[in-house]
C-alpha cells in the first residue's frame, strides 16, 4: 500500500497473507472457517497447491502473534471467466483450507455484499496489505492500511484510456490527491467498506498501471458482481476430510509394532 500507515492490531481481522514457497505473495480475506477469498492471478503461476500456505491473525509478516494460525491449501477454485474476456478479468479465487480456522478477537470473517449494494453516497472504504510501500520497491513487514475513495468506472475508463480496459465487473479506488493506492503484493487483498457498522468486502485487489501514477488508480474485482458465484461454490463444495483425533492411538500402535520388528532381528 502506497501512502498508507501501519494498521493497529486486530483492526482488520479478516486479512490473510498468502505465501508461496515460504514468501508472502498476495493477500486475501476470511469468508468462513474453511474458505478464503483472493485473486485468481495469485494462483495461476503454479497448479501445485502444496506450495501455498495461508496465514491468519498476522500483523507483522515476521512475527507470529498469539492468534496467528497457519494453513495448508486443500483446493483453489478460479472464477470461470478468469482471463476469458480480459487479460485479468474475473480475477477471483476461492481458497479452501485443509483444516478449519479458529476464530478469535483477531481472526474473524468479512461479509459479502448483496449484489444490489449501493456504492454511491460517499461510503468509506479501506484497502489493506503487505505489498510494496514505495515506487522504488520498498516493502513493509507491518500490515498497511489506507482509506481510498471509490472512483466511478466511467471516469476510471477515461483515465485508463479505453472502455475495454476497465470492465463493469471491476471497480476502481485510489486517493489521487494524496497518492494513496494499492501496489504489488497487495493483490488478492480486500477493499472493505463500512455499512451501518458492518464491514462488507466490495473489492479484491487485482491490477493497475504501476502504483506510482495517481492518475491510474488501482483496479479491483467487483465483489458484488461475483457474490452469487462465491456463495454457490462455498455452499456446494464438500469440506476437506480432516484426520480424526481418534485415529492417533492406532497410528501410535502401528509405529510401536514396526519399531519392535525392526529392533528384533539383531537380538536373534
Amino acid at each position: 500500500v502506497l501512502g498508507g500507515v501501519s494498521a493497529p492490531e486486530g483492526k482488520w481481522p479478516w486479512q490473510v497473507s498468502v505465501h508461496y514457497a515460504g514468501f508472502h505473495v498476495c493477500g486475501g480475506s476470511i469468508l468462513n472457517e474453511y474458505w478464503v477469498l483472493s485473486a485468481a492471478h495469485c494462483f495461476d503461476r503454479d497448479k501445485n497447491v502444496k506450495a501455498y500456505d495461508v496465514y491468519v491473525g498476522l500483523k507483522n509478516l515476521k512475527v507470529a502473534g498469539n492468534d496467528t494460525q497457519w494453513f495448508e491449501v486443500n483446493q483453489v477454485i478460479l472464477h470461470p471467466t478468469y482471463q476469458v474476456n480480459h487479460p485479468i478479468g474475473g480475477d477471483v479465487a476461492l481458497v479452501q483450507l485443509k483444516s478449519r480456522i479458529v476464530f478469535s478477537e483477531s481472526v474473524l470473517p468479512i461479509c459479502l455484499p448483496p449484489p444490489e449494494v449501493n456504492l454511491t453516497g460517499g461510503v468509506k472504504c479501506w484497502a489493506t496489505g503487505w505489498g510494496l510501500v514505495s515506487q522504488r520497491g520498498a516493502t513493509s513487514d507491518e500490515l498497511q492500511e489506507a482509506q481510498l475513495p471509490l472512483i466511478p468506472v466511467p471516469l476510471c475508463q477515461i483515465l485508463y484510456g479505453h472502455r475495454s480496459y476497465v470492465l463493469p465487473n471491476m471497480l476502481c479506488a485510489g486517493d489521487i490527491w494524496n497518492r494513496k493506492t494499492v501496489c504489488e503484493g497487495d493483490s488478492g487483498g480486500p477493499l472493505v467498506c463500512e455499512f451501518n457498522r458492518s464491514w462488507l468486502q466490495i473489492g479484491i485487489v487485482s491490477w493497475g498501471r504501476g502504483c506510482a501514477y495517481p492518475l491510474f488508480p488501482g483496479v479491483y474485482a467487483r465483489v458484488p458482481y461475483f457474490a452469487s458465484w462465491i456463495y454457490h461454490n462455498i455452499k456446494t463444495t464438500p469440506l476437506p476430510v480432516e484426520p480424526m483425533p481418534s485415529l492417533c492411538p492406532a497410528l501410535g500402535a502401528t509405529l510401536t509394532v514396526l519399531v519392535a520388528m525392526l529392533a528384533g532381528p539383531p537380538v536373534l
Binding site: K11, W35, P109, F195, N196, W199
Partner: peptide, 27 residues
C-alpha cells in the same frame, strides 16, 4: 451478534460468528 449489536448487513458465510465485525463484536 451479541452485546446489543444489530445483525450484520452483508451476506455471512459463517454460521457461528457475525461477519464484518471487529473483536468482541464478531462473537
Amino acid at each position: 451478534a451479541v452485546r446489543g449489536h444489530p445483525k450484520s448487513q452483508g451476506i455471512s458465510l459463517s454460521s457461528n460468528w457475525a461477519c464484518g465485525r471487529r473483536g468482541a463484536e464478531g462473537r
